[in-house]
Simulated assay, not measured.
Amino acid sequence: MNNKGIGAVAKGAWMLGSVDAIAHRIAQVAGPGFEVSTRRGKSRAVSSVYSATDEAKKAEAENRALTRAIDAGRSS
């Protein structure tokens, strides 16, 4: 196994774009106030969806808006 090659793919531009697109789909389904952060981690591309507004925090707390939106990231 070529660990350097795997690491290059896991942190590469294509992977960054892929995880960013998935995170944006999840944020869109979750609703207004959810934002995306994508970065190159130490060993892989990383995206997070987070509640950026009080309304989004309330939507997650009361209706699990973000939790329910996770399935949007599972389909391609």
Rank of each mutant, 00 (worst) to 15 (best):
A13G: 15
N2S: 09
S43G: 04
G17M: 03
R40I: 07
R74M: 06
M15K: 04
K57C: 08
D71A: 15
K11M: 14
G31V: 11
A59R: 03
I6M: 00
V46E: 05
A45Y: 13
G12W: 00
A27M: 08
N3I: 11
R25M: 07
I26R: 02
V19L: 00
V36L: 01
E35R: 13
P32M: 10
I26A: 02
E35Q: 14
V49Y: 02
E35D: 11
N63I: 12
P32V: 08
A21V: 00
V19A: 00
S18V: 04
E35N: 08
T38M: 02
Q28P: 12
G17Y: 03
S18L: 06
A27R: 02
K42S: 05
N2P: 15
S37D: 08
S75Y: 11
T67Q: 04
A52M: 10
G17K: 06
K42Q: 12
G73R: 10
V49D: 02
F34L: 01
E60G: 06
R68V: 04
V46S: 09
R25T: 13
G7K: 07
E62Q: 14
E62F: 06
A23W: 08
K57I: 13
G17C: 01
Y50N: 03
V29T: 04
G73K: 09
R68F: 06
K57G: 13
G73N: 02
K42L: 08
M1R: 14
G73P: 12
K4M: 06
E55V: 12
S51R: 01
S51H: 01
A69T: 00
A61Y: 07
A65P: 10
V19P: 00
D54W: 09
V19N: 00
V46T: 11
K58R: 15
N63R: 15
R74S: 07
A27G: 07
S47I: 01
D54N: 10
G5Y: 12
H24Y: 10
A72Q: 04
S76C: 08
S75T: 14
K11W: 14
S48V: 15
R40L: 05
E62D: 11
S43R: 09
A52E: 07
N3K: 05
L66Y: 08
V29E: 00
N3W: 07
T38Y: 02
V29S: 02
G5V: 14
G5I: 14
A56N: 07
M15Y: 01
A8P: 06
T67S: 12
G31W: 09
G41V: 06
G17D: 02
L66C: 06
A65E: 09
W14H: 11
D71L: 07
P32A: 06
A10I: 11
K11C: 14
E62R: 08
K42H: 06
A65R: 05
R44L: 05
L16F: 04
A10Y: 10
R39S: 14
N3A: 11
E60Y: 04
R74C: 03
I6P: 01
P32G: 15
M1F: 14
A10D: 13
S43V: 12
V46K: 11
R64W: 13
A45Q: 15
A27P: 10
S75P: 15
V29R: 02
Q28D: 09
V36T: 00
I22C: 07
T67L: 08
R39A: 12
G5S: 13
